[in-house]
Nucleic acid binder design. Structure first.
Lengths: 146, 146
DNA sequence: GCTGAAAAGTATTTTCG
DNA sequence: CGAAAATACTTTTCAGC
């Protein structure tokens, strides 16, 4: 993992479909060499893969919120994780320090759907209580850095 | 924006470097047709682009937190946004409903760096107070859906 | 371990219907 | 929209550092 690897990752974060030719020119290596480094970074776990960046709002998912979750005593993390994975609206979720036990990042097609989702989560068992923060606007959205 | 477009987006979210050939086979179109649809989706704003998915922990960014921000009265959103953009550790930030005015998702190399970042934010002016939730583990991480 | 030149194999892009 | 041709990219091979 040297400076060139980091440069390659930065270029691929900027544009995941950049050609090996293009990258090779920018980092002063040959295309096969770049390819071998990308494969190695992926094998080593530094690079997980490539994806498309969608505009969820443009696709109709206009409501986004961070929902703090408070568990019933004795609730297992894997139990809640499994429950959360049942809801496609849950985009990300983490266990956290602080008052809440976990936070779910959710995306719905409307505020009404968000309300239904929160109700469903509360009635699903392990989640005793929730506290939501609806996202009003994005202040910073930054491509990941290497 | 028909069913085939959504299928193409799903395939590209799964693998951002999938070839037009491969996609064409799966959606029963020709490669040029797929390419034209991808270009249109991008022009229409539904598809923003392509990126690499990094493992930040593997790259040394082992501490992640959600930091709630409480502004001084009369603080402008764009003012805080500009401040937050000055810190590369701030990966995402949103203005939100609820008690806090905004939430920043931050990534640092250590807990000590997180502490320094929070101190810096508090001393930077518009942020009066913060409340942090350090991420302990990921419960759900889902590729975006179309 | 790493590199790259060249050849062979694929994919992309343009053209045209 | 797709077939076909032209162009570009990727991948393998092989050899050198």
């Amino acid at each position: 993992m040297d400076a060139v690897d980091r440069q390659i990752l930065t270029l691929l974060v900027q544009d995941g479909r950049r050609t090996y030719d293009d990258i090779a020119t920018r980092v002063a290596l040959s295309p096969p060499s770049v390819r071998r480094r990308v494969d190695r970074l992926q094998a080593d776990g530094a690079l997980h893969g490539f994806t498309a960046i969608l505009d969820h709002a443009a696709l109709g998912w206009t409501t986004e919120a961070l929902v703090e979750l408070f568990f019933a005593p004795g609730t297992l993390l894997e139990e809640v994780a499994a429950t959360l994975r049942d809801y496609p609206e849950v985009v990300e979720a983490w266990s956290v320090t602080g008052e809440a036990d976990a936070i779910a990042r959710v995306r719905t097609r409307s505020n009404a759907d968000l309300e239904r989702l929160i109700r469903a989560l509360q009635e699903d068992g392990s989640v005793l209580r929730t506290r939501s923060q609806v996202i009003l606007s994005a202040l910073v959205t930054r491509p990941a850095s290497a």
